[in-house]
Design a protein around this nucleic acid. Structure first.
Lengths: 143, 143
DNA sequence: TTGAATTCCTACCATTTTAGTAGTATTATA
DNA sequence: TATAATACTACTAAAATGGTAGGAATTCAA
């Protein structure tokens, strides 16, 4: 039930790009230096975001990346799904529904669906801009 | 961001025990047969629940397990935390807070805290009895 | 008091996932 | 054409996941 580094690093990359939104293309070298994450690893992660059309990429000299939309138009849900794949809490919810033969009588499925709904609603309600503006609502919940 | 089989199997075990609450001790052999999960694997998983005082265990002939409380007094959150360890979405939230040196200026931490709050509130609001009664609120959310 | 049923404990193992590193090809621009 | 950047492919070490196996300890009933 953890977000992997792929998801966390992806979010930090996207936030870095959001904080430089409106400027020229931002290179992974710069992001790597600012975020202190190996550039080679960022190279490996960024295709997931690129495929989801969250970015505009430019190769070659002076190349790099830009957000394809304004930071206020990109939700955290989109980013994490792109980076991590499905955020469904159980894999039997992925792809087509009811792929599990027990789905109809499964007493736990409604629980997982309800949990997913909460996760979706929350993460889809927060944008990159919200995080930059520190607008996130949260409590002191830990452990 | 997936619940592992340890968490899912634990929940199914607890539900099985809940459905036989008030009866004698229930053996893993019976649970294994009903739930179609290897008894040997259940043996390995159940100590996590036992340590959290969710169960009463009895060894030997006619032994087995019982819930230590009524099904309406055991929340899904308790079960999953016992089985999976912390449900915090990022490991930097585990154990003592602010263990990460960047915690104070971390722009993403409030997001993870907010997400955890939602997960906690939801899973702590559902009991074993709720699942048995099919009282879970959920939507049609799936990828 | 012996045998069967059961939990409890420890060790082992194969597979998959995670978190990278490395090298090289490709592309764009100055 | 040199250079700076992405893009792609392959490799790898370590950890987590999802088990299996064997036997010790315990309890009860015949």
């Amino acid at each position: 039930m953890k977000i992997s580094t792929r998801g966390r690093y992806s979010l930090r990359m996207m936030l870095d790009l959001a904080q430089h939104y409106g400027e020229d293309f931002i290179s992974l070298k710069d992001i790597s230096a600012r975020q202190d994450i190996s550039k080679k690893y960022l190279e490996q992660i960024i295709p997931f975001l690129n495929r989801s059309n969250l970015l505009i990429a430019n190769r070659g000299h002076m190349g790099g990346y830009q957000l394809s939309r304004q930071p206020s138009q990109i939700t955290i849900f989109e980013i994490l799904v792109s980076a991590e794949g499905s955020l469904c809490p159980v894999s039997c919810m992925d792809n087509e529904p009811n792929v599990c033969p027990r789905a109809n009588e499964c007493i736990t499925l409604p629980l997982w669906q309800g949990l997913y709904k909460k996760v979706y609603e929350y993460l889809n309600g927060v944008t990159l801009q919200d995080l930059i503006d520190n607008k996130t609502e949260y409590g002191d919940y830990c452990i």
